[in-house]
């Protein structure tokens, strides 16, 4: 399976750093900070970060691709939501335009769109989004054999030994998340946001849409609300978080706690040698909804780490903790400490 790599100076054995670009400015920032590859989406419901003020129009994507290619980086376009029945055109157009505008790959979740891309945009690579939740060699190989999937973004539910074992049974490149927001649910199958707001990350591209979020200062601290429900309350001085249901603090059995997951961010910076040993091809940084300052700091830190790893040097665990949600970080399921 060939790599996306366009930069001839990059050894084929190195880990590919795949970085978020919510805007053209963030794309340029990511490329300048050392991203091997950036991923982005169009300004509509075809991608899973359909936030207001974010994403690319067609002209911006064309310019972004040119900038990235001029600097030896690749551009992946996320078209990773599931089309609504009877309204397939926006998704078809997104695939057609990504190919026409020079993107290097499309990141897809819906099996029908994968088939469409294979038939209508055969010249660009097809990556299987984490939203497709493919986590077994059989599932991944099925996509590869039938739809020519070149890479799969693995769900954040696998341990590193499981990823290593999976890589032994597939030729498909694997990409894993190494930093950023963490989904505790199986991606592409979570309906918590729909349940409270009527908006789905899978179909409209937004989890806990900002239009349904409110923060209110109360005597007891800052209350975060989603769809009118209080999801969390932060005491004075306590780091706040975004109100997603899975990261809410609820009272149960007379105890207030994070029932599902604390508002923490994934950070595998210090585990990169083990990640490389598991045989993955690419490292993905989450955060298309975050700003340029986040992109620059995280991409630089990971690029330094990838370069150091390649040269057999000590990893510099740079201080990026201040960019994490709730000010806390975790290795998530990669280093599973529960059963």
């Amino acid at each position: 399976m060939s790599r996306v790599a366009r930069d001839p100076s990059r050894p084929v054995t190195s880990l590919e750093l795949v970085c978020p670009a919510g805007t053209p400015a963030a794309l340029r920032t990511a490329v300048d900070a050392g991203a091997h590859t950036v991923y982005c989406g169009f300004r509509d419901e075809t991608n899973a970060r359909n936030f207001p003020g974010l994403n690319f129009n067609r002209e911006e994507l064309r310019d972004g691709v040119a900038y990235a290619h001029d600097h030896g980086a690749d551009v992946l376009v996320a078209i990773n939501t599931f089309p609504a029945a009877g309204n397939l055109d926006p998704w078809y157009r997104a695939i057609d335009d990504a190919a026409r505008l020079g993107a290097d790959a499309v990141i897809l979740a819906d099996i029908g769109l994968v088939e469409y891309a294979k038939d209508n945009a055969p010249n660009i690579r097809r990556h299987l989004s984490v939203q497709a939740a493919a986590s077994t060699p059989e599932g991944i190989n099925y996509y590869a054999n039938n739809f020519g999937i070149a890479r799969v973004v693995l769900p954040r539910v696998l341990t590193l030994p499981e990823i290593k074992e999976l890589n032994r049974h597939t030729e498909v490149e694997t990409e894993v998340f190494v930093f950023g927001g963490l989904c505790v649910m199986a991606e592409g199958r979570c309906s918590l946001s729909s349940y409270v707001t009527g908006k789905s990350p899978n179909k409209t591209g937004v989890c806990s849409p900002a239009s349904h979020v409110a923060y209110e200062e109360t005597g007891a601290g800052l209350a975060s609300k989603l769809g009118g429900f209080t999801i969390n309350r932060f005491a004075q001085g306590e780091p706040a978080g975004y109100p997603t249901l899975c990261k809410g603090r609820f009272a149960a059995n007379d105890k207030v706690s994070y029932l599902f997951e604390e508002p923490v961010s994934l950070n595998l910076l210090e585990m990169l040698p083990e990640v490389a040993d598991a045989g993955v091809t690419a490292l993905k940084i989450e955060g298309r909804q975050r700003g340029k300052a986040y992109v620059e700091k995280v991409v630089k830190a990971f690029r330094r780490a990838v370069d150091a790893l390649e040269k057999g040097q000590q990893l510099d665990a740079a201080a990026i903790a201040d960019l994490t949600e709730g000010g806390q970080e975790t290795a998530g399921a990669y280093r599973k400490a529960w059963h």
């Binding site: 919510g22 805007t23 207001p52 003020g53 900002a210 700003g291």
Partner: peptide, 18 residues
């Protein structure tokens, strides 16, 4: 800190950043 229309604030932040 902010109060009010979260969607508008998020959009403004994103637009300024871009």
């Amino acid at each position: 800190v902010y109060e009010g229309d979260t969607e508008a604030v998020v959009a403004l932040r994103n637009a300024l950043d871009g």
